[in-house]
Amino acid sequence: MAVIDIDDSNVKENLNQNEKVIVKYYASWCGSCRLIKPKYKRLSNNERFEGITFLDTDAEHNPEARKLAGVQSLPYFAIFKNGELVEGLSTSKEESIVELLEKL
């Protein structure tokens, strides 16, 4: 499944329309964010995580989306189930993202 870009105008809609969601919060200036991008895309295409919607949002330009997950540092990953925040984590390690996905 492709990674879907979202912003403040459609974040709640995407969270509520999909049962299991992971959101990656990034900023254009963030080097770690750029490094994790291809790994995140690869995870989104992994059959193991079929049924999970992968979203991407620029934390600097989307304060409402950022507030929903309590983002403090980047890159930040948050998992949501049925529109509700389950857990969030600031990391640039693929293993940590996989652990987060396994909680869904």
Results as ranks from 00 to 15, higher is better:
69 A>Q: 02
85 L>Q: 09
54 F>M: 00
1 M>N: 02
61 H>G: 14
96 S>I: 03
19 E>C: 03
60 E>K: 13
70 G>I: 01
33 C>K: 08
45 N>M: 05
64 E>F: 12
67 K>P: 01
56 D>L: 01
14 N>P: 08
22 I>R: 06
17 Q>N: 15
64 E>S: 10
42 R>I: 04
90 S>M: 05
15 L>W: 03
74 L>K: 06
8 D>Y: 10
40 Y>G: 08
45 N>G: 14
52 I>L: 09
18 N>S: 10
100 L>W: 01
68 L>E: 01
34 R>Y: 11
78 A>T: 09
80 F>M: 06
97 I>Q: 02
96 S>H: 13
21 V>D: 11
10 N>T: 10
66 R>K: 11
15 L>G: 10
72 Q>K: 01
18 N>L: 03
4 I>Q: 01
89 L>G: 06
78 A>W: 08
85 L>P: 14
73 S>W: 06
82 N>P: 08
59 A>K: 07
4 I>W: 01
50 E>A: 15
17 Q>D: 11
72 Q>T: 01
58 D>L: 08
71 V>H: 00
38 P>F: 04
93 K>E: 14
80 F>P: 10
16 N>F: 11
25 Y>I: 04
34 R>P: 14
60 E>G: 15
24 K>T: 04
63 P>Y: 06
23 V>R: 01
57 T>Y: 02
33 C>S: 15
68 L>C: 05
30 C>N: 01
99 E>K: 15
38 P>H: 12
5 D>C: 08
89 L>T: 11
33 C>Q: 06
93 K>S: 14
25 Y>H: 14
22 I>T: 06
38 P>M: 07
6 I>G: 10
50 E>G: 03
97 I>L: 07
99 E>D: 10
60 E>W: 11
31 G>I: 07
91 T>H: 08
83 G>T: 11
33 C>N: 08
22 I>V: 15
101 L>V: 08
3 V>C: 00
89 L>M: 14
20 K>F: 09
68 L>N: 02
45 N>V: 03
73 S>H: 02
31 G>N: 07
7 D>K: 04
14 N>R: 10
14 N>M: 12
80 F>S: 14
82 N>Q: 11
60 E>P: 12
100 L>V: 02
88 G>F: 12
56 D>P: 00
14 N>A: 08
66 R>L: 07
65 A>T: 12
45 N>L: 07
102 E>D: 13
15 L>A: 13
61 H>W: 13
54 F>I: 00
95 E>T: 09
17 Q>H: 05
13 E>R: 07
78 A>G: 11
18 N>G: 04
98 V>G: 02
96 S>Q: 15
74 L>S: 05
67 K>C: 03
